[in-house]
Design a protein around this nucleic acid. Structure first.
Lengths: 217, 217
DNA sequence: GCGGTAATCAACCAAAAGGTTGATCCACGG
DNA sequence: CCGTGGATCAACCTTTTGGTTGATTACCGC
C-alpha cells in the first residue's frame, strides 16, 4: 500500500518540486495539494469523503497568507478536518528554536529542512507516515544540545516573549497580546535576561538571534 | 530556437520544481543546475565551452552557503564566467526594497517571487530572455510606491547608531564607543525613530532589519 | 505526596530611555 | 552669502524598563 501524501505550501514552485521529487520514489503518491492551512483542512476532508484517505501531510510552516502551518497542524491533530488525524511532517526553510518548539507543540511528527537532499526527505516521509518521528540532523542536534545543556535554555513561554520583544513591542503591548499583566511580562523578562546573560531587551534580542532562538531576518 | 535556462538555487526541492514547471512550457529548456553562485559561474563556463550557450540564468538571491545571488549576478554581468553575459532573472521568496535594489544594481533583468503562478513565471522567463525587464506586480508596485513616497533615508552616522543599537548597547555605551555625549546619542535616536516611524529602540531595530538597513542573523 | 519548575501577579524603587526646546558648528549648493 | 542639513551638546521632564521581594497556582517526576 503506497503512502498517500498531501502537500501544503504557498509556493507553486515548491509544490511542483516536491511532487516531482516524490514521484521518483516508489511507494509514495501525492494525492493532493493546498496553498495554505485552511485549504489543507478542506482538501483533507474532501479526500476523506472520496474514500481517498491521506497518510501524511507535508507542510511548510510559513505561509504568506491564509492559515499558518502551526495553526493548521493543531487543527489537523484536533480532528477538525473530520478525518482520523494523519501525521504532519513539517518541511520548512529555517531551523530555529521558536519554530521547532511551535511545530512540535502543535503535534507535528517531524521537522525537515527544504535544503535536505532528496533521499533524506524520502526517509522522513516514510518514517513519519509509519508514525515515527523524523527530524533533520540539524534539528536533532539542536534538541540534543538543549538536553545536554539544560540550564541556559528558555522555556516555551519565554521564547514566545523574546519573539514579541524582537518585533519592537513594549511590555504593555506584549501583556495585552498575551492576555497577561505587565508584571508577568516583567517577571519573564528578568528570567530571560538572567538566562541569556544580558540586562536589557535589545541585548536579549541580539543574543537570542545569534543563538538562533529566534529568527533574524 | 528554444530558450536555454540555467537554474541556481540551493534547495534541491526548488530546482526540481522549476525544472518540472518549465518542462511543461514549450520553447523553454533547462540545460543546467547549480546550488550557489560560484557553481553557477563554473556551470556557465562549462556549458559555454561545450557549445551549449545559456540564454537565461534563473537565480535565487539568498543562498544558504557559497556565493550569494547578488555577487553572482554582478560577476556574470562582468563576464567573469568567460561567456557573453546572459540575462539574469531573480526568482526569490522576499520582496524587500534592499534586495530588489541590490539585484537591479547588480544587473539583474528581472525580479520575480516564488509564489507567483506558473504562467507569470513563464512570461517573465520569455521576456527576460528577450532582453526585456520582467518585474513581479508586487515588486513593480513597491518601486513605484518608493518613487511616489520616498522613505526618509538614514544618514551614515544614523546607520552606525542603529548598528550599535542592534548589538544591545545602552545609550551610555554607545556614547563612549563613539566619543560623543549621551545627549547626542539621544538626539540621533529621536531622528532615527522619526525616520523609521517608531518610538523605541527595539522597534527601530526590527524595522531597520526588515528594510535591510542593517543585517539580521 | 513532596520538591522543583513554569506561569502568573503585585508593590516598590532606581535607572534608563523617550520627548522637547534650543543652541552651536560646519560643509555644501544654488 | 545665505539656507539647509548633519552632527554635536545641554537642561528638563515624563514614561518605560530593570531589579527585588514575595506570593499563588498548577503540573510533573520520583
Amino acid at each position: 500500500m503506497n503512502i498517500r501524501v498531501l502537500l501544503v505550501d504557498d509556493h507553486p514552485v515548491v509544490r511542483a518540486g516536491l511532487r516531482a521529487m516524490l514521484a521518483g520514489f516508489p511507494g509514495i503518491d501525492v494525492v493532493g495539494e493546498a496553498s495554505d492551512g485552511g485549504a489543507a483542512l478542506v482538501e483533507l476532508s474532501k479526500l476523506h469523503v472520496l474514500g481517498e484517505p491521506v497518510d501524511l501531510v507535508l507542510m511548510d510552516l510559513q505561509m504568506g497568507s491564509g492559515m499558518d502551518g502551526v495553526t493548521a497542524t493543531a487543527k489537523i491533530k484536533a480532528g477538525e478536518a473530520g478525518t482520523p488525524p494523519p501525521p504532519v511532517l513539517i518541511l520548512t526553510t529555517y531551523d530555529n528554536d521558536a519554530d521547532i518548539l511551535a511545530a512540535i507543540e502543535a503535534g507535528a511528527s517531524g521537522y525537515m529542512l527544504k535544503d535536505a537532499p532528496p533521499d533524506q526527505i524520502r526517509q522522513a516521509v516514510v518514517s513519519a507516515a509509519a508514525g515515527q518521528t523524523a527530524l533533520a540532523p540539524e534539528v536533532a542536534a539542536r534538541l540534543v544540545g538543549r538536553i545536554r545543556n539544560p540550564m541556559p535554555v528558555l522555556s516555551g513561554r519565554e521564547v514566545q516573549l523574546v519573539e514579541l520583544l524582537a518585533t519592537g513591542m513594549s511590555n504593555r503591548a506584549i501583556a495585552r497580546k498575551l492576555f497577561i499583566s505587565e508584571a508577568t511580562v516583567k517577571t519573564h523578562l528578568v528570567h530571560i535576561y538572567a538566562k541569556l546573560g544580558v540586562d536589557n531587551r535589545t541585548a536579549a534580542i541580539a543574543v537570542a538571534t545569534q543563538r538562533r532562538i529566534i529568527r533574524g531576518q
